[in-house]
Simulated scan of single mutants.
Amino acid sequence: MAEVLLYHHIQGLTEGVREFADELRQAGHTVHAPDLFDGHTFASIEEGFGYAERAGFDAIRTRGAAAADDLGPGLVYAGFSFGVTIAQRLAQTRPGARGALLLYSCLPVTEFGDAWPPDVPVQIHGKQDDEFFDEDLPAARELAASAAAAELFVYPGHQHLFADSSLDAFDPEASALLKDRVQAFLASV
């Protein structure tokens, strides 16, 4: 079983993110899901973005990276959208990373180094007509093509946070498929 450090999206540690973490735990994985917004959740991406802007993106990302300090090596770093900015950096730069799950977002690998670590498998998930994922899709395709063990899954539709059951963007069918693929990934690392 895998040990996962899961970072929430810009709307906070919502009930849907908690549910996602709990489903991984029920499958036998150890999941850490730090609350980077101190209990605040937001009804919209814009409200969450405003909070993060006031709190300081760098300060939030620093807190997120610090959550890994108390945990040993061998983690799978996972992030939902905004959380990908932390998870991807740790997967690329922290020794001993076991894998990465990049949900709804992907940054260019060059943000955190020259190349993706060859021994770190990665899965990337997003919707083909999601306005936010659309700007990340070239980086996701490049990572999928260049990494030794990378998978890119693009789902039909436009919803951004589609696997969060507590939000209007929830897509039950795509979410179920994403969760199956995540479970298979975690079983393989």
Rank of each mutant, 00 (worst) to 15 (best):
R98P: 00
F20P: 00
G99N: 05
T14N: 10
Y51S: 03
G39W: 08
R61C: 05
D70H: 14
G50P: 01
T30P: 00
A97S: 11
E111N: 12
G56K: 06
T85G: 14
Y51V: 01
D35W: 07
T30H: 10
I60A: 08
S44L: 07
V31P: 00
R54N: 13
E53I: 04
E23T: 03
A67D: 12
A97D: 02
D69R: 12
G39F: 08
A52F: 07
L101M: 14
F57S: 07
G72C: 04
T41Q: 14
I10V: 13
E47S: 14
V120K: 02
P34Q: 09
I10K: 01
R25P: 00
G28W: 07
A68F: 03
Q26A: 12
A68H: 09
S81Q: 10
D119A: 13
I45S: 12
E46R: 14
E46T: 14
G16W: 03
I86V: 14
S105M: 10
D69K: 12
T110N: 08
T41I: 11
E23A: 05
T93S: 07
F82W: 14
R18E: 13
S105Q: 14
A52Q: 09
F42M: 06
A43R: 12
F49S: 12
C106S: 14
L90F: 04
Q88H: 03
T85Q: 15
L24E: 04
F37E: 04
D69S: 11
L101K: 02
T62V: 10
G56M: 10
R61M: 11
G48D: 11
G12A: 05
L75W: 06
R25K: 09
D114S: 12
L71S: 07
A21Y: 01
D22P: 00
S105C: 11
G64K: 02
